[in-house]
Computed example of a mutant assay.
Amino acid sequence: MTQSRRMVVLRAVVEDYIRFQEPVGSSALTKQHDLGVSSATVRNDMAALEDEGYLIQPHTSAGRVPTEKGYRYFVDRLATVVPLSAAQRRGIDSFLSGSVSLQDTLQRAARLLSEITGQVAVVAAPSLAKSTLRHVELVPVATNILLAVVITDTGRVAQHTIVANPMPEQDGAARFTNAVNAEAASLPLTSAARKVRAMAAAPQWKELAPLAESLAVAFENMADSERTNELYMSGTSRLAHQHAAIADLAPLFDALEEQVMLMRLMSAMPRHDGVGVAIGSETHTPGLMHASVVASGYGQTKTRTGEGGELDIPGWGSPDSHDSNPSRTSKHGGDMIDRHAAYDEQSDQTDDSGQNDAEPVAFVGSIGPTHMDYAATIAAVQAVARYLTASLAHEGDGD
């Protein structure tokens, strides 16, 4: 009995359990897959995989189901994931292009990802700390109060109230604002704050020094503030239709309510070329012990590509890891993936070394059961992340 054949059996068990969500027996496995060995041999392989912690047998007379270790092995050795068909990409583009604002785009993206995967979708608004200043306006709203309205390169709009004592003359405030926009545009908000303070030291702005300091503080507060209400979620009602125990659902709902926790989890997940997968205990979150999370950054992320334009994900394209049935379909999204075709919409922002030289400004993710269709979910998350990146780039050009 060879280790390589045993792992082929493991892969087949995971695929069938994802597809049918029922314990997998050796007889059914030999019928569904051309493993080239008898049912008895497969049964011995499955017993060995159980001893090694990759499978578990829920009941003595039942088949076996994957463990976290089994899912992790499967995910780490997925064949190269090539996102979505041309028709589906056009559908995404059509759906998202109808957005009227950044908020609308993110809300639509969450709904769309949930529809494609049949799972919970989470989309975070671009981080102000990672955004750059495009434009600022100071709007009088009361006798001694100004409203600083900041527009970032991602299209996000933030507001901050400034108390001005004394209230500057309208012409002077307008000239100062125009100077700030000329000097600080395209700078991160913290750098813009330093620029404004430096400007205030110039003789021409001496009388507006208090206003300059207040505006600098406003920029710094915006950069430091990561508000939880900037998280867009869709598909939580779908959890009730999942094949999961009620005891597992209650803590999952609680975890979804903890938006700060979700933001930290998805932003900190280790990623291979932009995509991260955390399974069960890997989330380090009690409410997600029976769930998996797939997340990707979007915004300024630059995608590394291999030869031929395919995603080059470490450990994901070994010669012996190709799907024995590449025409598999997702029960939620139709023909989701042709895992052996070329993806023709790679980012063109990669430098000559193929390395990423910018951090993503936010993340998009999908949360579902550990028996989720990982290949389809990864594909969908990648596709939505890329369209959000393109959308923000479009905003950043000022179009």
Rank of each mutant, 00 (worst) to 15 (best):
E50R: 15
H33Y: 15
V42R: 03
V24Y: 03
Y71A: 00
P66D: 00
V81M: 02
L49A: 08
G25N: 15
N44E: 10
S27F: 13
D51H: 15
V81G: 02
K31Q: 15
S39G: 11
G36D: 06
T41A: 11
G63M: 04
G53P: 00
K31N: 14
L29F: 06
D76K: 06
Y54P: 00
V24I: 13
D51Y: 13
T67P: 00
G53D: 04
E22W: 14
H59N: 13
P23S: 12
A40N: 11
T30G: 04
G53K: 11
T30N: 05
L84K: 03
N44M: 11
E50I: 11
A48W: 08
P66N: 01
V82T: 05
L35Y: 04
Y54K: 03
R43G: 08
L29I: 11
A62K: 10
A62P: 10
Y71D: 01
R64T: 04
R72I: 00
E22K: 13
T80F: 06
G36L: 12
K69A: 05
A48E: 14
M46H: 08
G70K: 00
V75Y: 01
L49M: 08
I56P: 01
Y71L: 00
R72G: 00
S39T: 14
E22S: 11
Y73D: 03
A28N: 12
P66H: 01
L84W: 01
L55A: 05
A62T: 13
Q21D: 10
A48K: 12
L29A: 08
V82M: 04
N44D: 10
P58G: 06
H33P: 06
G63V: 05
Y71F: 02
D76S: 07
L29E: 07
G63I: 03
D45W: 05
A79L: 06
D34A: 14
A79R: 09
G25H: 10
T30Y: 03
V42I: 11
D51P: 09
D45I: 06
E52A: 15
H33T: 08
V75I: 09
S38Y: 06
A40G: 09
L78T: 06
V81E: 01
Y71T: 00
Q32P: 06
P58T: 05
V75P: 02
R77V: 04
P23T: 10
E68P: 00
L29G: 07
E68C: 12
A47D: 10
E52V: 09
T80I: 06
E52D: 15
T60A: 14
P83M: 02
Y54C: 03
L35F: 07
G70I: 01
T80C: 05
H59K: 15
Q21S: 15
V81Y: 03
P58A: 07
A47H: 12
Q57T: 13
V65E: 01
L78C: 06
A48H: 11
G63N: 05
H59A: 15
V82P: 04
D45E: 13
S26L: 09
V24N: 05
I56H: 04
G53H: 07
V42K: 05
L29R: 07
L84T: 00
E22L: 12
V82K: 02
S27W: 14
